[in-house]
């Protein structure tokens, strides 16, 4: 496996995975809709000019063209900002990829509040819910450079279509060689027996760990689960944590309706595991413009709010 510690941004991990997959497998093609320089896939284009296509600002067409490419034995990796990679090309992903049983890997960059200064029009909170309606599609949101790189490779190897939520800018090197990164297997990032905090994506996993540290000072043991794969859900890890802690706070950089929290609640209910549940998400709100810090405060994604909600569950 490639040394991921040198990546300076999440997009470096994305492009490294594209290039390594391209070198290994000649069926891999990369497509973009005029945001190639934003994710950095221009580096893939440089190495594999014949296997890179920029479709222009026409995301819906890109998704269905990718479905066509897939039917000739090619495996497209397509990128756009998450708002366009979900809402704008949804029917094409649903019919020409999902329903037609094609394999296409979708990268939706800058999910939720990480869209920051592009503002509300560019802030996808509903992409998880939308992708959950496409049967069989993998949905993942890694929380560090190494898991991002590794899970992209694993998504390709699965042979199934996938949707990746990842910020482009900034980076966290959270996991070393000692941590097993496996698609569909959540990482317990911190142990604790009083309450479980489930989080997806780099920002919320960070805030959850920070909240857990503070809770420890107050004598509350918070377990933190990094749910990097939203589908297929690692029910085993979730149910074990629910049984052992009896309280669960589910944090996602997205909307409640159809999202991760709603999904996990249903799993707990069906399994008959008694567990108090609360959520951190944007609820019914639309996105807005601002810095990551401003948006995180506005939507309650900061460690202080996570800690307060966790404490309320424990009381």
């Amino acid at each position: 496996m490639r040394d991921t510690s040198t990546f300076e941004n999440y997009k470096d991990a994305v492009v490294a995975a594209m290039i390594d997959l391209g070198r290994e497998h000649d069926d891999v093609v990369v497509m973009d809709a005029d945001l190639s320089s934003c994710i950095g896939s221009t580096a893939f284009q440089k190495e594999f000019p014949e296997r890179f296509y920029n479709v222009g600002i026409a995301e819906a067409n890109m998704a269905a063209v990718a479905g066509g490419l897939s039917s000739v034995g090619l495996t497209p990796i397509i990128h756009s900002f998450g708002c366009f990679a979900s809402r704008r090309m949804y029917d094409q992903l649903f019919i020409s990829v999902g329903y037609a049983h094609r394999t296409v890997h979708v990268i939706g960059s800058d999910p939720g509040i990480t869209a920051q200064y592009n503002g509300g029009t560019h802030m996808p909170f509903e992409d998880i819910a939308l992708m959950r309606q496409i049967p069989g599609m993998i949905i993942y949101e890694p929380s560090d450079a190494r898991s991002l790189y590794s899970l992209m490779i694993q998504a390709y190897e699965s042979g199934k279509s996938s949707y990746l939520r990842t910020p482009r800018k900034g980076v966290i090197h959270r996991y070393g060689e000692d941590v097993e990164i496996r698609l569909g297997k959540a990482i317990t990032a911190r142990q604790g027996d009083d309450v479980t905090i489930v989080a997806t994506g780099a920002y919320l996993v960070d805030q959850a760990l920070k909240a857990a540290e503070s809770l420890a000072g107050k004598g509350v043991g918070a377990r933190v689960i990094d749910l990097h794969t939203i589908r297929p859900l690692d029910e085993e890890t979730i149910l074990k944590a629910a049984k052992e802690t009896g309280r669960m706070l589910i944090c996602e950089n997205g909307r409640y309706a159809g999202g991760t929290g709603e999904m996990i609640s249903a799993v707990l209910l069906k399994a008959g595991v008694p567990c108090k549940v609360d959520f951190v998400n944007v609820g019914e709100r639309f996105g807005e413009v601002g810095s990551l810090d401003y948006l995180a405060t506005t939507f309650g994604f900061k460690a202080e709010n996570i800690e307060a909600k966790a404490l309320a569950l424990v009381k």
Partner: peptide, 8 residues
Amino acid sequence: SAAVGIAL
């Protein structure tokens, strides 16, 4: 669109 992808 799919036909364009197939031809490509």
